[in-house]
Write a protein that binds this DNA or RNA. Sequence first.
DNA 1: TTGTAAGCGTTATCAT
DNA 2: ATGATAACGCTTACAA
Lengths: 344, 344
Amino acid sequence: MKVTIKEIAEKLDISPMTVSRALNNRENVKKETREMILETAKKMGYRPNYIARSLVTNKTNTIGVVVPEISHSFFPEVIRGIEEVTYEKGYNLILMHSSEDAQREVSAIATLESKQVDGILISIAETVEDFSIYKNLVDEGYHLVFFDRCVKGIGASCVRLNDIESARKITQHLIKKHRYKRIAHLKGPDKISIGKDRLDGFLSAMKENNLKVNKDWIVDAGLKESEGKRAMSKLLDLPKSRQPRAVIAVNAPVAFGAIEAIKERGLRIPEDIAIVAFSDNIRAQLISSPLTTVRQPAYEIGRKAAEKLISSIESEVADVEDIVVNAELVIRRSCGCTYEPEEK
Amino acid sequence: MKVTIKEIAEKLDISPMTVSRALNNRENVKKETREMILETAKKMGYRPNYIARSLVTNKTNTIGVVVPEISHSFFPEVIRGIEEVTYEKGYNLILMHSSEDAQREVSAIATLESKQVDGILISIAETVEDFSIYKNLVDEGYHLVFFDRCVKGIGASCVRLNDIESARKITQHLIKKHRYKRIAHLKGPDKISIGKDRLDGFLSAMKENNLKVNKDWIVDAGLKESEGKRAMSKLLDLPKSRQPRAVIAVNAPVAFGAIEAIKERGLRIPEDIAIVAFSDNIRAQLISSPLTTVRQPAYEIGRKAAEKLISSIESEVADVEDIVVNAELVIRRSCGCTYEPEEK
DNA sequence: TTGTAAGCGTTATCAT
DNA sequence: ATGATAACGCTTACAA
């Protein structure tokens, strides 16, 4: 039922090799022979078997993508960017989804290796503690590019936001524009770059303005809404005199959780407490005090990561790059600014 | 650099076959031999080569997914549902993206065939005119399941919304609850089921209530925002006396386009003209007259489609099913109902 | 319990 | 320009 090169060859009474050459548009086939082969192949409904081809060429023209989650808007948009580039360059995409689970991520990577992908794009799961897996991949010569959530210093390229700079920028906004002095940070996991960088940028801006950062104001908030709520509650449990006037959340879900905690105490945003966050999403403008955020150019991150990976696959040079994409401040009401709602 | 079964066998001075058996947890391997093999394999960093395995077993444990677009919320959510099931059942996902382009869809399918996927899940591109491709796939014995945008009568299963019923329900709401009589429909392409079914449900409800449907009130609006705007303009260009009092849009983007046209003429929603749409999305609740919609259980559609496909792959029975998922009315202000904004 | 031989569909290499 | 042969890494079928 499935037509093979061999069958075409038999039908035409020529060698499989000639058929293969014709089908692959090689030079050295007589014009008439080629035409006859192409026609017959079409008539017989021939489809090349990439599995067999890959086995001999040791190339699958496939890249694996591992994302931690796919429900929110950021990763689908990144995937769209990746998909666009891979399509242009003739690659396919195997999509794996770690659900923020380190174990599942390990098995996803193993599967991709077994599928002999030409390279891997990965944004690591929140719970990952052991980076040796990535290190091993790189050491074994795999093409690996991180995006958004990167691991530094293991020799893999990385496409990410300029998080330190963005954190500085949004902190500066709170300080210079609004004259807030008591600023807290709901921070992400130390282990992943967004957690560390956003904290660093925040601290750097505070220091630059000679503002004191109370130790209680740096609270672990993970990356999820429930954790954001818990972390914010901790801040609000402080004696009034030690509470912050403004809060910077590591991402939007954490901010939404924090907002819940604030509302439950009957406090107003931004009058009683201001809040801003990284990672813009549509819900940020929807809520009653629209959230000032740092908007991430997700599509662009996807494109750049895919481009970097494919160029590294095709050129075979191990040119490790740290590609930084600039984010944009989206000013809304939650920081204390006045605000014209955006339609659409 | 890449470890093979043969290399493990040589190192242990046994046959590759025994190694293969041990690695695949077959019964007939002595316990000590198996343990020794497993240990060595691990130490050497062995990864099975699924490409080679697939070539002989003729099974890739991979299914292909073709979606028309990935930017909006619906398809990512469907993909999540698909991903969840494929993960549970031990399958992988190759993701292809037609960009609503028939030609690109054809090439996506050809690629999936070449990659020897075990089955294909597809939601067809808007511009597809020729259904013989799908028919051929089915006739050749491919496992094919449509989701959301289905093609009927070619012997493939389909998971979709109960569009006729949903259309009836939302039309009934406009008629019974609001007493609108002059109702127009911004319709989708006839060729795809959502276009046809939503129109049919609308017409059926109108007929049941003895309401006349002016021919001018059925306007082709494609599936995109720009086309929705153009279509709505057509309605608004009618003499005042022949204009509809309420409009049902085939999907949310078309509704947003229509709303733009309405606003540009200085008309109010729902006071001057009411509008409702299929396919809820977060923007629907965001706009100034929050849109009454039919909410599609995308995740569930993804799950059911994947389950159906995998069961058909594994059971080898050609049990064609038309699986219908029920949608839910989300009442907001644009239909004329009063409305409490949802936070979150 | 273990081994041998053949073959999956394709392409690389060397020959003609 | 075309063909013969071997090989990619694995598993099936059969033999020992």
